[in-house]
């Protein structure tokens, strides 16, 4: 990557990589079709929650959108034509935080260092992100000895430090207690308020109600609904979604 590329990405980088167009994708693994003919478009702005019971294909869909997996059929396209730039404007936080065996600060620096952000700029960004994540006081501690909630917040801070336009989150609070979950949700609201597009999976209905602007409902690898949160929660179209909202597991 040349210096001018770096320049473009971190200072004058405002053109949106959204919308994201997912066209008729399928994903097969082990002889089974796990994602079946899904199409949708994601625009900048509203927080998108991918809902569905366990095994519906939520995590797969997120990975397909983020490019960690390639669809067996169909296409995933960002409006940004340069795939490298499109990738550099995305980040992802996983269900279990994958932290490096280094200090908290070093973890936060890692992604920026990969993008060759100059040291001074990096330090400023990281300090700010750590403060926002409430982790400044543990900046020099080993990341792997933090509590579960702190670790997940660090994963968020690390992703956030990259200043992505789109942040994917795969059940980021699945393993956290209510207090830690609330802390993560607070952070997510701040990110959203700052203009980051959130695309997040969850099976926690309460969380979906608290955060969602738009909802995608998946069931057995199929997209059954894609609608604004208000109408989804008030009046689900499909019987499966209605059953899911009523707490009847569909499997």
């Amino acid at each position: 990557m040349t210096a001018s590329d770096t320049e473009r990405q971190h200072t004058a980088d405002t053109a949106s990589i959204l919308p994201l167009r997912v066209r008729d994708i399928c994903f097969d693994a082990g002889g089974k079709r796990l994602i079946e003919h899904i199409s949708f478009t994601v625009h900048a702005g509203p927080c998108l929650i991918v809902l569905g019971p366990n095994g519906a294909g939520k995590s797969l869909l997120l990975r397909l959108c983020h490019g960690l997996l390639s669809p067996s059929e169909g296409t995933v396209e960002w409006v940004e034509a340069d795939p490298i730039r499109a990738r550099s404007q995305q980040a992802m936080v996983f269900q279990r935080p994958v932290l490096l065996r280094r200090s908290v600060a070093a973890n936060a620096h890692f992604g920026l260092r990969l993008r060759r952000v100059p040291r001074l700029e990096r330090q400023a960004v990281v300090a700010k992100a750590l403060r926002q994540g409430g982790l400044s006081h543990v900046a020099n501690r080993a990341a792997r000895v933090l509590s579960g909630g702190e670790q997940q917040r660090l994963a968020l801070v690390r992703a956030w430090a990259l200043q992505p336009q789109v942040l994917f989150l795969d059940e980021p609070t699945a393993h956290l207690d209510p207090a830690a979950t609330r802390a993560v949700e607070t952070l997510l609201k701040q990110f959203h308020a700052a203009g980051t597009k959130l695309i997040m999976t969850t099976h926690d209905l309460g969380q979906a109600r608290r955060l969602a602007d738009d909802v995608i409902f998946l069931h057995r690898g199929r997209l059954l609904e894609h609608s604004p949160a208000d109408s989804f929660f008030a009046q689900p179209h499909s019987a499966e979604a209605a059953a899911f909202l009523n707490g009847n597991l569909l499997w």
């Binding site: 990975r63 960690l68 992802m92 996983f94 065996r101 992604g111 993008r115 990259l162």
Partner: peptide, 25 residues
């Protein structure tokens, strides 16, 4: 453990080698 996270951060498999070595030190 790290493959997805590293790819998400844009680390290619060659660039991942020093990172993984350092993680496994």
């Amino acid at each position: 453990e790290y493959a997805e996270q590293l790819r998400s951060l844009g680390v290619g498999s060659l660039r991942a080698i020093p990172t993984l070595l350092w993680e496994g030190r």
